[in-house]
Design a protein around this nucleic acid. Structure first.
Length: 494
RNA sequence: GCCCUCGUCGUCUAGCGGUUUAGGACACAGCCCUUUCACGGCUGCAACAGGGAUUCGAAUUCCCUCGAGGGUACCA
């Protein structure tokens, strides 16, 4: 109750990715939940790039992350980059040294490695052995004079650390299990735990919402908040996202970055919707919703503690739903990078109309935009690429030839009289006519429709026949029928 | 090893001591619609990790075991 009062006026969340890779699905989920929480509470969201690991961070990754965040429809109120704030961390660390809450450690990394190896072999907890904890003034002076590189370590004092996780409830630690850790690395950059605390205070962060993998860091950070005399923010930890086999989501499970999913043909609406459903559900039980409509219903307290397995089937289902919700004209824009005609950037007026028809015919069959790609391939060629076994089988029937013959003559006449364009209605009328004509031979149903379908697509599945005919146009239909007749001849010989 | 977290259908979850023959969604199976595929509709399949304790009563509270995940860095 009191905590609610405390932050009512000034709620500030932050999202703090490190640019050591693209925007990972799990990181994106954390970003989304921060956005949801901040917006639902009427607070602000800060984006902070944690690029203090000079070796692994890079600007391309940062751009990619920001790009993907924006693509998802997330926005933020303030932006910071830790690499631009290095003096601040140094200054705060010096302060702690002065207060004897931190100290310079001159141990080489070799020594630390050896120490760790030794402790492991003895079956003891690994951790720093406090060698430099109580160096006297002259020892320190001497080391500094020798220009020995040093780190700044925090002096962990015996204490019990407890905090109330907004998702998990009370979590306690004993300082016994935490050894003196590094605040400032020997290259002068701050370590993660230190930079985070200084920044969260500096940026007036009221709520820290991050992944479960940071729970143990929280203990270290709380010690630092106390030692630096800062106010301690609220904490909440989201569960991990796991792969199908229950292990941490990694490349082995397929695509792991938002960029990849975008390229696979997932819509931002679907990604946001699905990710928000990972460890949270609206009370109403809705499964499909827009983020803009849902954040009001979002409550941090309702977030589930269980780890969630990333289920591509459900994402596909959601994505299919959003594809169906889009109009064909919206889809044509989204589809641009996926369509063969879009690839070589020569979309004529006629092509455009064709694509529109094509989208209309296929959009309720498809789970990802990328699936349009291979589908489109078949429709934008003059020839049929290959005949399905089932189609070949259908066309072996005596009556198939008759059907195709009649179909061809109708298309042929239309082509001579009205050209390539043929509307769905006209195509439908043709089929009806053929149906009437062949009634006396008792050719109907499958035996009527399938040969027609197979003769122009080589396939027994697909969109409604009139749609296909209209998409292809009579020119292509005639070419393909001719091709099919040859195919049937050859097929007979075998 | 030590520390922390988590454990409801295959998966995401609802459930907050009696209203529960544990509800919904995805996936799967069947049926209907349909010239086909898909969409849509209907039906079905399927879970409280195990053991104790508290209680008249436990998926819900407590303890133990087991399982999973995370941390234990001059990575974040």
């Amino acid at each position: 109750m009191e905590t609610e009062k405390k932050y009512n006026k000034d709620i500030r969340f932050r999202f703090a990715p490190s640019p050591t890779g693209g925007l990972h699905i799990g990181t994106a989920r954390t970003a989304l939940f921060n956005w949801l929480a901040a917006r639902s509470m009427g607070g602000k969201l800060v984006l902070r790039i944690e690029d203090t690991d000079l070796k692994r961070s890079n600007r391309d990754f940062e751009n990619s992350i920001i790009n993907d965040l924006k693509w998802m429809g997330l926005d933020w109120d303030e932006f910071y980059r830790q690499s631009e704030r290095l003096e601040i961390y140094l200054r705060e660390a010096e302060k702690l040294i002065d207060e004897k809450k931190a100290y310079r450690c001159f141990c080489s990394s070799e020594r630390l490695e050896n120490l760790k190896g030794l402790l492991i072999s003895e079956g003891k907890p690994t951790g720093y052995d406090n060698k430099c904890r109580d160096l006297n003034e002259s020892e320190i002076e001497e080391n500094l004079k020798e220009k020995k590189p040093y780190t700044i370590r925090y002096r962990v004092e015996p204490d019990e650390i407890a905090f109330n996780d907004l998702i998990r409830g009370e979590i306690k630690f004993s300082s016994d299990v935490i050894s003196d850790f590094v605040l400032i690395k020997s290259d002068g950059t701050p370590s993660y735990n230190f930079a985070v605390v200084v920044d969260d205070n500096d940026m007036n962060i009221s709520h820290v919402l991050r992944g479960e993998d940071h729970i143990t860091n929280t203990a270290r950070q709380i010690m630092l908040f106390k030692s630096l005399g800062y106010d301690i923010p609220e904490f909440a930890h989201l569960s991990m996202i796991l792969g199908k086999d229950g292990s941490k989501l990694s490349k082995r499970h397929g695509a792991t970055t938002i960029t990849q999913y975008r390229e696979e043909g997932y819509l931002k609406e679907a990604i946001g919707n699905y990710l928000s459903l990972l460890s949270w559900a609206p009370k109403s039980g809705e499964e499909l919703f827009a983020l803009e409509n849902i954040f009001e219903k979002f409550r941090l307290q309702d977030v589930s503690k269980n780890p969630a397995i990333f289920d591509i089937d459900k994402l596909n289902w959601i994505n299919g739903n959003y594809i169906r919700m889009k109009s064909s004209s919206e889809l044509i824009k989204l589809l641009d990078p996926f369509l063969p005609s879009g690839k070589d950037k020569k979309l004529s007026e006629a092509d455009n109309l064709k694509v529109l028809k094509f989208i209309d015919a296929f959009k309720d069959k498809i789970k990802t935009l990328k699936e349009f790609d291979c589908l489109a391939e078949d429709f934008f060629m003059n020839e049929i690429a290959s005949y399905e076994d089932e189609a070949a089988e259908i066309m072996k029937a005596e009556t198939a030839g008759m059907v195709i013959e009649r179909f061809e003559s109708k298309i042929y006449r239309h082509n001579k009289e009205s050209g390539n364009e043929i509307s769905e209605e006209e195509a439908k009328e043709f089929i009806n006519e053929i149906s009437q004509e062949l009634k006396e031979f008792n050719i109907k149903g499958r035996m009527l429709y399938m040969p027609i379908r197979a003769s122009i697509t080589g396939n027994v599945h697909g969109p409604e026949l009139p749609k296909i005919i209209s998409i292809l146009g009579t020119d292509v239909c005639l070419k393909r029928i001719k091709q099919t007749k040859i195919f049937i001849e050859n097929n007979k010989k075998i």
